[in-house]
């Protein structure tokens, strides 16, 4: 026995072999909680859970409240609305955006996964679909599916045109959480980029797209 050695650390078996700071922090936390661990609390979930389909009008109202521009159209009318919004400007689109949504003759760069940031930033407009939209908050969520693309696509162009089908509209945040897949990169968007850092005045457009158009398609 060697009385001069430092005391053996409190090292539960399952953490052995890991870095010492990990052991240190976990050991501290166990010591902090003590032997009489507080019983894990039952979480009362008496709040409103998923409510299903959302009201497209409410979504439109809340989008408009945060200064997104909402357009209503039918599936067949998407290309015409986009044509008007592009007004001759070039757009970048994700790999899986349906060809039929694009107006004939539009200048469109399709992302094959190899576009550089500079190439994406050089386009004025990005056109995408969405994964889900939340009526109660006026939020659209992108999940990087092929018709929405990687996250950088919707970040650098100054105008984002997002196509939402009314069957993608859910009532509330719990609905969206239930529908989304956590493993995917997710971007929740509620209106254009904004700041209230100067005297609490909301100013649209700092670093993300300064203009957000949402096409609500029935």
């Amino acid at each position: 026995m060697n009385n001069h050695s430092t005391p053996a650390p409190l090292r539960p078996e399952d953490d052995s072999g890991a870095g010492s700071s990990r052991d240190l922090v976990l050991g501290r936390l166990r010591a902090a909680l003590g032997d009489q661990r507080p019983a894990p609390a039952e979480v009362p979930r008496a709040y409103q859970g998923p409510a299903g389909a959302g009201d497209a009008h409410r979504l439109a109202e809340n989008l408009a409240d945060y200064h997104a521009t909402v357009h209503h159209c039918s599936t067949g009318g998407i290309a015409a609305v986009i044509d008007r919004l592009l007004a001759g400007r070039a757009a970048v689109v994700p790999p899986g955006l349906p060809e039929g949504w694009l107006p004939p003759g539009a200048t469109v760069l399709r992302d094959d996964g190899h576009l550089t940031h500079a190439q994406i930033a050089a386009k004025d407009v990005v056109i995408t679909a969405a994964a889900v939209a939340i009526a109660a908050t006026g939020t659209i969520v992108l999940d990087a599916s092929l018709d929405q693309g990687r996250r950088v696509l919707t970040l650098l162009p100054d105008v984002h045109v997002c196509i939402v089908h009314t069957d993608q509209v859910v009532a509330s945040v719990p609905d969206a959480i239930a529908r989304l897949e956590p493993g995917r990169p997710l971007t929740w968007i509620s209106g254009p980029s904004a700041t209230s850092d100067i005297e609490l005045d909301r100013v649209e457009g700092v670093h993300g797209p300064r203009t957000l158009h949402v096409l609500l398609v029935t």
């Binding site: 809340n62 945060y66 939340i134 109660a136 908050t137 006026g138 939020t139 996250r151 945040v173 956590p182 493993g183 995917r184 990169p185 997710l186 971007t187 929740w188 968007i189 509620s190 209106g191 254009p192 980029s193 904004a194 993300g208």
Partner: peptide
């Protein structure tokens, strides 16, 4: 009601 952007990654 919701902040303009939320990013989630795994």
């Amino acid at each position: 009601r919701m902040n303009p952007y939320t990013t989630m990654w795994t």
